Lab assay of single mutants.
Amino acid sequence: VDYIVEYDYDAQHDDELTIRKGDIIKNVKKLEEEGWLEGELNGKRGMFPDNFVKEIK
């Protein structure tokens, strides 16, 4: 499942992704941690907030 970024987010920890509006995040999975998703961007896998992105259908 792929998501498109709607709002910029700067990573706060090493396991998070810095994302920018218009980025496409690939292979996204829901995490047990409420409010977070995990996906791949530019060869890096990491977490990001689910309210900054929208699923591409």
Score class of each variant (00 low, 15 high):
Lys54Arg: 14
His13Asp: 10
Glu38Ala: 11
Glu38His: 08
Glu16Trp: 05
Arg45Asn: 05
Asp8Tyr: 04
Ile24His: 04
Ile4Lys: 07
Val5Arg: 01
Lys57Ile: 15
Thr18Trp: 02
His13Asn: 10
Glu55Val: 13
Gln12Asp: 08
Asn51Arg: 13
Tyr3Gln: 02
Glu55Ser: 03
Leu41Phe: 11
Asn42Gln: 10
Gly46Pro: 00
Lys26Phe: 15
Asp2Phe: 15
Gly39Val: 00
Asp23Ile: 04
Tyr7Arg: 15
Arg45Gln: 05
Lys30Met: 09
Phe48Ile: 15
Asp14Gln: 14
Arg20Asp: 01
Leu31Gly: 10
Ile56Ser: 04
Val5Tyr: 02
Gly39Asn: 00
Lys26Arg: 14
Asp10Thr: 12
Leu37Asn: 04
Glu55Lys: 06
Ile4Leu: 07
Leu17Ile: 07
Asp14Val: 13
Leu37Val: 07
Glu38Phe: 07
Asp50Val: 13
Asp23Pro: 00
Val1Thr: 11
Tyr3Lys: 03
Trp36Gln: 03
Phe48Ser: 01
Lys54Glu: 13
Thr18Val: 07
Leu37Pro: 02
Leu17Asn: 00
Asp50Leu: 15
Lys26Ser: 10
Leu17Pro: 00
Tyr9Glu: 00
Val53Trp: 04
Leu31Asp: 05
Glu55Gln: 05
Ala11Lys: 10
Glu34Phe: 10
Phe48Glu: 00
Leu41Val: 08
Gly43His: 13
Lys54His: 10
Gln12Glu: 09
Glu6Ala: 08
Phe48Tyr: 02
Gly22Ala: 05
Glu34Tyr: 09
Tyr7Met: 13
Asp23Glu: 14
Glu55Arg: 10
Asp10Tyr: 14
Asp2Asn: 14
Tyr7Pro: 00
Gly22Tyr: 09
Asp50Ile: 13
Arg20Trp: 02
Ile19Ala: 06
Val1His: 13
Glu33Gly: 13
Pro49Val: 02
Glu16Tyr: 09
Asn51Leu: 06
Leu37Ala: 07
Asp50Thr: 14
Arg45Gly: 02
Asn42Lys: 13
Glu34Gln: 12
Lys44Val: 11
Asp10Asn: 13
Met47Arg: 10
Phe52Pro: 02
Glu33Lys: 12
Asn27Ile: 04
Leu17Val: 03
Asn51Ile: 08
His13Val: 13
Leu37His: 04
Ile24Val: 07
Pro49Arg: 15
Lys57Leu: 15
Lys29Met: 15
Gly46Phe: 02
Pro49Ser: 14
Gly22Gln: 04
Val5Asp: 00
Val53His: 03
Leu41Ala: 06
Pro49Asn: 15
Glu16Thr: 02
Asp14His: 14
Ala11Asn: 04
Glu55Pro: 15
Asp50Tyr: 15
Lys26Ile: 14
Gln12Met: 11
Val28Lys: 01
Asn42Asp: 13
Leu17Gln: 01
Asp8Val: 03
Glu38Gly: 05
Glu38Val: 08
Gly22Val: 01
Glu16Phe: 07
Asp2Glu: 14
Ile19Phe: 15
Trp36Met: 08
Asp2His: 13
Phe52Asp: 03
Asp15Met: 13
Leu17Ala: 01
His13Tyr: 12
Asp15Trp: 15
Asp15Arg: 14
Glu32Tyr: 08
Glu16Gly: 07
Met47His: 06
Glu6Ile: 15
Phe48Val: 15
Asp15Glu: 08
Lys54Gln: 08
Lys54Ile: 06
Val53Lys: 02
Lys29Leu: 15
Gly43Arg: 08
Lys26Ala: 12
Gly35Thr: 06
Leu37Ile: 05
Gly39Ile: 01
Glu33Arg: 14
Tyr3His: 03
Val1Gln: 13
Ile56Arg: 10
Met47Gly: 06
Tyr3Asp: 00
Gly22His: 11
Gly22Asn: 14
Lys44Glu: 07
Trp36Phe: 09
Lys26Val: 12
Leu41Thr: 06
Glu32Gln: 14
Asp10Leu: 12
Val28Glu: 00
Gly39Leu: 00
Gln12Gly: 08
Trp36Pro: 01
Asp8Thr: 10
Lys21Tyr: 06
Trp36Asn: 02
Ile25Glu: 00
Asp8Arg: 07
Glu32Thr: 13
Gly43Asp: 06
Ala11Asp: 01
Trp36Lys: 06
Arg20Phe: 04
Thr18His: 05
Lys57Gln: 15
Lys21Thr: 07
Ile25Trp: 00
Gly35Ala: 04
Gly22Ser: 05
Asn51Glu: 13
Tyr9Thr: 01
Tyr9Met: 03
Tyr7Phe: 07
Glu40Trp: 13
Val5Glu: 00
Lys26Gly: 08
Asn42Met: 13
Val1Leu: 09
Val53Asp: 02
Lys54Ala: 09
Gly43Ala: 09
Glu38Arg: 11
Ala11Pro: 11
Leu17Asp: 00
Gly22Thr: 04
Glu38Gln: 07
Gln12Ala: 10
Ile19Gly: 03
Leu31His: 10
Lys57His: 15
Lys26Asp: 02
Glu6Gly: 04
Val1Trp: 06
Lys26Met: 12
Asp8Trp: 04
Gly43Trp: 09
Met47Tyr: 07
Ile4Trp: 12
Ala11Ser: 12
Lys21Gln: 10
Gly35Ile: 03
Lys44Gly: 06
Ile19Met: 15
Lys57Val: 15
Asp10Arg: 14
Asp14Ala: 11
Ile19Lys: 00
Glu33Met: 12
Glu33Phe: 13
Glu33Val: 13
Asp15Thr: 13
Trp36His: 03
Glu33Pro: 09
Asp2Pro: 11
Tyr7Gln: 13
Glu33Gln: 13
Gly43Leu: 09
Tyr3Gly: 03
Gly35Met: 04
Ala11Leu: 04
Ile24Asn: 03
Asp23Val: 05
Lys21Met: 11
Lys29Tyr: 15
Phe48Ala: 02
Gly46Ala: 06
Val1Glu: 06
Asn51Ala: 10
Lys54Ser: 14
Lys54Gly: 04
Leu37Glu: 02
Asp23Lys: 03
Lys44Ala: 09
Pro49Gly: 06
Asp50Asn: 12
Asp15Ala: 13
Asp8Glu: 06
Ile19Gln: 00
Leu17Thr: 01
Tyr3Met: 06
Val5Phe: 02
Glu16Gln: 11
Lys57Tyr: 11
Asp50Arg: 15
Glu16His: 10
Asp23Gln: 15
Tyr3Asn: 02
Asp10Phe: 14
Lys44Phe: 12
Glu55Met: 07
Ile25Gln: 00
Asp15Ile: 12
Ile25Tyr: 00
Lys30Ile: 10
Lys57Met: 15
Leu31Val: 13
Val28Ala: 13
Lys26Asn: 10
Tyr7Asp: 14
Leu17Gly: 00
Gly39Thr: 01
Leu17Phe: 03
Asn27Leu: 14
Asn27Gly: 08
Asp10Lys: 13
Glu33His: 13
Asp23His: 10
Leu37Gly: 04
Asp14Thr: 12
Val28Trp: 05
Asp15Pro: 08
Leu31Pro: 14
Lys30Gly: 09
Val53Ser: 05
Lys30Tyr: 09
Asp15Leu: 12
Glu40Ala: 10
Asn42Thr: 07
Asp23Trp: 12
Arg20His: 09
Arg20Pro: 00
Trp36Tyr: 09
Glu32Arg: 09
Asp50Gln: 14
Val1Met: 08
Ile4Gly: 08
Met47Val: 08
Ile25Gly: 00
Asp15Asn: 10
Asn42Trp: 14
Arg45Ser: 07
Leu37Phe: 10
Gly39Ala: 02
Asn27Val: 05
Tyr3Arg: 04
Leu17Arg: 01
Asn51Asp: 10
Ile4Tyr: 09
Leu31Trp: 08
Lys57Ala: 15
Asp14Ser: 14
Tyr7Thr: 12
Glu32Trp: 11
Glu38Thr: 08
Tyr9Lys: 05
Phe52Leu: 08
Ile25Asp: 00
Arg20Asn: 05
Gln12Pro: 03
Tyr7His: 13
Ala11Gln: 13
Ile24Ser: 03
Asp2Thr: 15
Val1Lys: 11
Arg20Gly: 03
Val1Ile: 10
Glu38Pro: 00
Glu40Tyr: 11
Leu17Met: 08
Lys57Phe: 14
Lys29Glu: 11
Lys21Asp: 03
Asp50Gly: 09
